[in-house]
Structure formats: structure tokens, C-alpha cells
């Protein structure tokens, strides 16, 4: 058993005096572990993001790889296009209306679920289904529910005596918009409910109890104690909801394809139609880029909110 000279020494000294290697240099190790993920995101989110901006200033088509500068031409074409203005207007409308409804529904759903004595978990599970199901499949279910001939909604309204004529859901711009907003609300309110529920558990119970002891009634307690405390968490739900709703393509695409008469297009679906189906990448990119302000506002608001909550407001 002849060990090479020095080997024994190293072995006995190992616990205390082992030489420091890369495996110990924490800053370096940290960078090595982080870099692959960072590079992936940089190359496949950062670069395409810059490319999205560049494309919007170019005459690129998906047929060729040529890349010629077009200045503000795409934007000028887009802004003077009534279809685009309609899409922009719809995006804002769908987002604002559905988020207002989502806030009201989600806050009340959360309060209701929290107050349940039995069946809380079951109700939460069922309410969450719309958010968990794949959006494209859920959209198909709604397409069938609003079918012009077989709509169960029409049947029920008729039987209840609330409908005299007939609703052609996807044949009329207003009805089509109501249908789209319904689906957005249906999909987003469960998500917001769960966020609010999670936020409520973080609110100390004694605040609410104290208000009760102080003699505050149900409504006063709700509006002056509970809701203000919930505000930051509701804000988080709304910010996410804004991003998910304003940038969504699948619901509009599967329900109406932007119809009837291009009246229900949103920025995302119009960008898809022009940029991918119409092969005009430049114009498609220019249209999609109008979503950017929303995202910037949301990102800034998130960071602000983070700071405010951190200092304990």
C-alpha cells in the first residue's frame, strides 16, 4: 500500500485545509450556473424583441430574407388604416371592460369562498377550472355554446321569455364583442380570485375582528377595512390580467376570426392576419408593437408596487 508522497497528507488535511477550487468560489459558481438560462432568454427573447422593433421599420416579407429600411412607412400605413384603429379601440375596450368585471367578480368570489364553512376546497377547485383548461379548447366550447343555430344561450333566453327575436352571436359586431368579453371574463376571473384568496390569508385576522368589536357593520367593514387592505393584491391580479387580456390572440381568433366584417379584430389578431397570413412582416410587427406601451406601464407599475409593499404601505 504505497501511496504517492503527499497523498496521505492531503487526505488527512482535507476537512480543513483542502485547496479552494472553482467548486468553492461562490461568485464564479453563481455565474456559471446562471449564465445558460440567461443566455437562452437573451438570445431567444431579447434578440427577437429587438428584431420585432427592427422589422417594424422594414419592408420585410416572410417570402424573402431581404431586409430593407422603410422608415416610418409601416406606422404611417397602419395609423391611417381604419381596420387598425378599430383593432386598437377593441383591444382597449376588451381589456378595460373585462378587467373591471374581473375585479368585481373576483373580489366578491374570494370573499364568498373564504366565508364558506363547508365545501370551500371543492368550490375553489371548480372555480379554478376555466383558468387551468387550455385556452384554445375552452374557446371552442364557447364557439359551440354561441353557435348561430344551436346556441343554448338563445334557447334558455327564449324559454325564460327574455328574447323575442334571435341572437346571431358572431354575425353582429356588438353581440360578437359581448361574446368575446364574456369568454375573457370567464377565463380571467378564476385566476384573479385565487390571487385575492392568497392575498387575504396574508391579512391579519385581528384587524377584521377589531373592526367588528369596534362596531363596524358588514358594509363599513368591507369598504373601509377589508377592501383597502386587499388593494395591492387586487392590483397585482389586474396587472397580470391586463397583460393576458390585451395580448391574447386565441380567443378572438377562434371565436370570430376578427369578423363579422373585421369588426372584432384586436391588435394581436390583426398582426397575425397581416404579418403571418398576409406575409407582410413589417406591418404585422408595427401593429404588434402598439402593445408595447401596455407592457411598459404594467412592468413599471409592478416594480412600483413591489417597492411600496416592501416599505410596508
Amino acid at each position: 500500500m504505497a501511496l504517492p508522497e503527499g497523498a496521505q497528507e492531503t487526505m488527512t488535511a482535507a476537512p480543513v485545509l483542502r485547496r479552494r477550487t472553482v467548486a468553492d468560489r461562490e461568485d464564479l459558481l453563481g455565474r456559471i450556473l446562471l449564465t445558460p438560462a440567461l443566455l437562452y432568454v437573451l438570445l431567444l427573447v431579447g434578440v427577437p424583441f429587438v428584431l420585432a422593433i427592427l422589422l417594424s421599420f422594414s419592408r420585410a416579407t416572410s417570402g424573402s430574407l431581404a431586409f430593407s429600411w422603410a422608415g416610418l412607412q409601416n406606422f404611417a400605413a397602419v395609423i391611417s388604416d381604419p381596420q387598425f384603429r378599430r383593432a386598437l379601440q377593441n383591444t382597449v375596450l376588451f381589456t378595460v371592460v373585462s378587467q373591471v368585471l374581473v375585479v368585481v367578480l373576483a373580489t366578491s368570489a374570494a370573499l364568498v369562498v373564504d366565508a364558506l364553512l363547508v365545501g370551500k376546497r371543492v368550490v375553489r377547485f371548480l372555480i379554478l377550472l376555466p383558468w387551468a383548461a387550455p385556452v384554445s379548447l375552452a374557446a371552442m366550447a364557447w364557439t359551440w355554446i354561441f353557435d348561430s343555430t344551436f346556441s343554448v344561450v338563445n334557447w334558455t333566453l327564449k324559454v325564460a321569455g327574455l328574447l323575442k327575436g334571435w341572437f346571431y352571436w358572431f354575425g353582429d359586431p356588438t353581440l360578437a364583442m359581448i361574446a368575446i368579453i364574456t369568454v375573457h371574463v370567464w377565463r380571467m376571473f378564476p385566476f384573479a380570485t385565487v390571487i385575492v384568496l392568497a392575498g387575504r390569508t396574508a391579512i391579519p385576522q385581528d384587524v377584521s375582528e377589531q373592526a367588528m368589536i369596534d362596531g363596524a357593520g358588514f358594509w363599513r367593514k368591507l369598504f373601509q377595512v377589508e377592501l383597502p387592505l386587499l388593494l395591492p393584491i387586487v392590483a397585482v391580479a389586474v396587472l397580470f390580467g391586463m397583460v393576458f387580456t390585451s395580448t391574447d390572440l386565441s380567443i378572438v381568433w377562434l371565436l370570430t376570426r376578427g369578423g363579422p366584417y373585421n369588426s372584432t379584430h384586436v391588435l394581436a389578431s390583426l398582426a397575425f392576419q397581416r404579418g403571418i397570413l398576409g406575409a407582410d412582416l413589417g406591418q404585422g410587427a408595427a401593429i404588434a408593437l402598439f402593445l408595447l406601451p401596455v407592457l411598459v406601464i404594467v412592468a413599471v407599475a409592478m416594480l412600483r408596487l413591489a417597492r411600496r409593499v416592501e416599505v410596508g404601505v
Binding site: 393576458f244 397575425f272 404579418g275 403571418i276 412582416l281 402593445l291
Partner: peptide, 9 residues
């Protein structure tokens, strides 16, 4: 950053 901003690039 949503897919709808990135699908064209």
C-alpha cells in the same frame, strides 16, 4: 413579454 409580440420576429 407576450407571444403576440414575439411571433412575428
Amino acid at each position: 413579454i407576450p407571444p403576440t409580440l414575439l411571433f412575428i420576429p
